[in-house]
Design a binder for these strands. Structure first.
Lengths: 228, 228
DNA sequence: ATATTCTGTGTATATTTGACGCACAATAGA
DNA sequence: TCTATTGTGCGTCAAATATACACAGAATAT
């Protein structure tokens, strides 16, 4: 695709590498966390960054993101969403790298991240205590978080972060953690039950005062809600 | 349909070309239109597509989009927004091309598109009468339109398409054209005036029954609204 | 047992949204 | 010039939605 009046010689064969970077969010101990990895090689050796990797020749970017996460945290993500593409020519100090960012949602307690390859560490960080990241990843992370909040406001989709059975209070804590604000218990309950993809089970959670009812997700109803 | 068998070994050095494609929306004669160009070369010779071009070596994708539009329709866009990145390995039949789509808003009456380079035609099409496009551009267009509507629902940003002074009815027609639905005149008025970036002028529009009041945009207030 | 803590439910109020009627202004046509 | 027509400007009323808040019951802790 050309047709320019530019004097540029080879815009066609511009060969920037393309990567996919993932903001993997997880919720544990009442806080939203993000999975970061620490680089052991230059550039930005010693810096924490979002996990990412180069797009393969036969791969779509989403597949790249999925593969990278699989290799790193050994999990098939429950939710993966494209956020944006960053193409500043000097965002990578060595060579030109265009990156497309995704956000993902996983359950941290299920997956202990392992540092592999060029990484020296991999760990969950509280979103409120994220250090200065390598490259432009602070910005990527910020944009991804904004997008997550935006999506969550429209339609409930964070249920993948909850266990198979959960109480409404647990769901509320999850929402509060992601949205970063506290919600009224009764209003949250009413609103979330207004959708009809929560199924009340006959079980109650033991060890908690009040004996809260356990709910489970009606996946088919959720699908309908997401599409319709 | 192919030609290039990839024997590439290292996914790191993957060198897919990267383009920016633009869904340029314009509003005229009460309808939302999109700027399409007709290809005169293979692949998809004779097909209409979204205007686009290859990213230059020193260019960010948004600059590419801006440059392509400048070269094609000779206009500095009023609004340009990234939509998504498409990376299906076979979305381009000849070689691998990743594309990032943008949508733009311009005033059609100000700019007569000119077909240049590899193009045989360039014209505004009613959004309701878009033909089968080359590549995956029907999908790109659809996604861009969705994004536009989404943005318009959140915050008013289509005022750039209006003349310096305009009546509320003109603004309403614009919204209706983009959203594809009719709105109640009085409710629209109330809602749009609830924001405070419309300044009532002392002038009235002549030649129109009712003598409607002309408004103008308070750019600084709009900025505040968009950011805050 | 008794106090404590958390869950579950209802209700009253304020705000936002949607539908609609009517008078006035400017034009168009006789 | 006078009248009909058409579109604007403004207000009202009802429905839906969001927000704030109070109390009873269940399970736990002492």
């Amino acid at each position: 695709m050309d047709g320019t009046l530019n004097i540029r010689v080879t815009p066609q064969t511009s060969a920037a590498a393309h990567t996919a970077d993932c903001a993997v969010f997880g919720f544990s101990k009442g806080e939203l966390r993000v999975l970061l990895v620490q680089r052991a090689v230059e550039p930005f050796s010693g810096y924490w960054v979002l996990p990412g990797g180069a797009m393969g020749d036969e791969e779509r970017l989403e597949e790249t993101a999925r593969r990278v996460l699989l290799e790193l945290v050994g999990v098939r993500d429950l939710y993966l969403q494209q956020v944006a593409t960053y193409s500043d020519p000097v965002r990578h100090p060595v060579r030109r790298v265009v990156t497309t960012s995704y956000y993902a949602l996983v359950k941290p307690e299920n997956h202990t991240p392992i540092a592999r390859g060029y990484l020296s560490e991999a760990a969950w960080h509280k979103l409120t205590e994220v250090p200065e990241l390598g490259f432009d990843h602070n910005r990527l992370l910020q944009d991804a978080h904004h997008r997550l909040i935006q999506h969550l406001r429209d339609r409930p989709l964070a249920f993948d972060l909850l266990p198979e059975r959960f109480t409404l209070t647990e769901a509320q804590k999850l929402y509060e953690g992601i949205l970063g604000e506290s919600l009224d218990r009764r209003n949250f309950r009413r609103k979330i039950l207004a959708y009809d993809f929560l199924i009340e089970t006959s079980e109650k959670r033991a060890g908690v005062k009040g004996g809260p009812i356990l709910y489970r997700l009606d996946r088919s109803a959720l699908e309908r809600e997401m599409n319709g």
